[in-house]
Simulated assay, not measured.
Amino acid sequence: MRRLVEARAHALGFDILRVARPDSVPDLPGRLSAWLGSGSHGEMVWMEERAEARAAPAGLWPEVRSVVMLGMSYAPETNPLDILGRRDRGAIAAYAQRRDYHEVMKGKLKELGGLLSAKSGRPVKVFVDTAPVMEKPLAEAAGLGWQGKHTVLVSRDFGNWLLLGAIYSAADLEPDTPEPEHCGTCRRCLDICPTAAFPDPFRLDARRCLSYLTIEHTGPIPAEFRAPMGNRVFGCDDCLAICPWNKFAEAAHEGRLAAREDLGAPALRELARLDEAAFRHFFANTPVKRTGRDRFLRNVLIAIGNSGDPALAAEAARCLDDPAPIVRGMAVWACGRLLGPEACAGLHARSGKDEADAHVREEWRAVLAASDGETPAS
């Protein structure tokens, strides 16, 4: 049965399959509790909800006897760090430059789970990153790889470019051997982080992580993180791209996960002009769509402010009248970076209106205070 299921998994496009016991990570509840207690999850309140179910597979489904973990490679064909030097272009995380992996993997997992259920005579449940499942610790316990110092799963065969899925089975399946950690003394992933988001090896403070800030964070990006964002408009691959284990990774071969060429280096000028309908059309069926147009343009305007290109100031100035306050606020910041305080004072005067949103008023105050020779608080 194992050979049959594994062969079908490979035929469906999965690159690796391993099995773990549901109780194979006994210290997980304590680790999760400590991480949540420190507030390192930021606004991701869903991490707190159903924490008991997240910390142990049996807490989610008492019938589970085996956890089948699967990985699908999405290794990029080019180095994700290369785009960071092209300041007039937006950097989108490698996984988001392609079709939403939830859509790609869910149907395949259901088919594979159906086969496992039919052959074992026991029920299954399948999950792809949308349920309270701790995929990375379970994948490590199953032997897919190990959680590196950047907390992402690292594989000796696929680097850290694996998308994970899980099948909970009520059948007793023979577990595989866990993969020991092979990071050694290397700390490249920690040292490259532009915002020092790792207080210690193997521990992430999401509140400082650019992936979290550009995707999950709902409000204005804190001022201290805007310059380090550079041109990253959705996610950040720095700690992944620098990992030396990637030298063994092969480019993704699942056809539906092929990267879109137009998402490899989109022009900031064009991204800044997306209205709601254009945003939804351009990013249809990709992970970027779920962040929403307003938060995405917030990120784009920060990238424009970091571009050092005065020619892009017109795009930022145009967004000063955007309906969304979060967009207007970052447009003010970008104009301040590219045009300087005196030109921004002229823009503010010509607007002839008092800003209703407190965040936008504060951004204007910071820019205008600089024009008076004051040191802005932000």
Rank of each mutant, 00 (worst) to 15 (best):
G264N: 00
L32A: 06
T130C: 08
E363C: 08
G329D: 03
G145P: 11
G30D: 04
A249V: 11
D191N: 15
P201Y: 14
V332T: 09
E315W: 02
E254R: 13
G264C: 01
A314G: 02
D191I: 09
C243P: 02
P228G: 11
G219C: 03
I16V: 12
G329Q: 03
W61K: 13
V327I: 03
W333F: 04
G71P: 12
H182E: 09
D309T: 06
R50D: 13
A227V: 12
N285R: 08
E342L: 15
I192G: 14
H41K: 05
G42M: 08
C243S: 08
R269E: 12
L163E: 11
Y95D: 02
R3I: 09
L347V: 10
P199Y: 04
A223T: 04
T185N: 13
G143V: 09
T195Y: 04
A252Q: 07
K353M: 01
K149N: 15
P178S: 08
A272G: 07
G373M: 14
W364T: 05
T177M: 10
D294W: 03
L268I: 03
R269L: 12
A349T: 11
S73R: 06
V327D: 02
A227I: 10
E254N: 12
R87C: 01
E254W: 00
F296C: 02
H41M: 06
F158A: 15
G264Y: 00
Q147W: 00
D238F: 01
L173I: 10
R65V: 03
I16H: 05
P341C: 05
N285W: 01
E63G: 12
P287N: 08
H182K: 06
M229V: 14
W245K: 13
A267S: 10
E254K: 13
D191Q: 15
E179C: 11
I83G: 01
A56I: 00
S155P: 06
N79P: 03
N160E: 00
P80K: 07
T78G: 01
L162A: 09
V126Q: 00
A196E: 13
G145W: 11
M229Q: 15
G42N: 06
R156T: 05
A118G: 13
L60M: 14
D205R: 12
T78K: 10
C209F: 11
N160T: 09
G148P: 15
N299I: 01
G255Y: 00
W61L: 14
I83S: 01
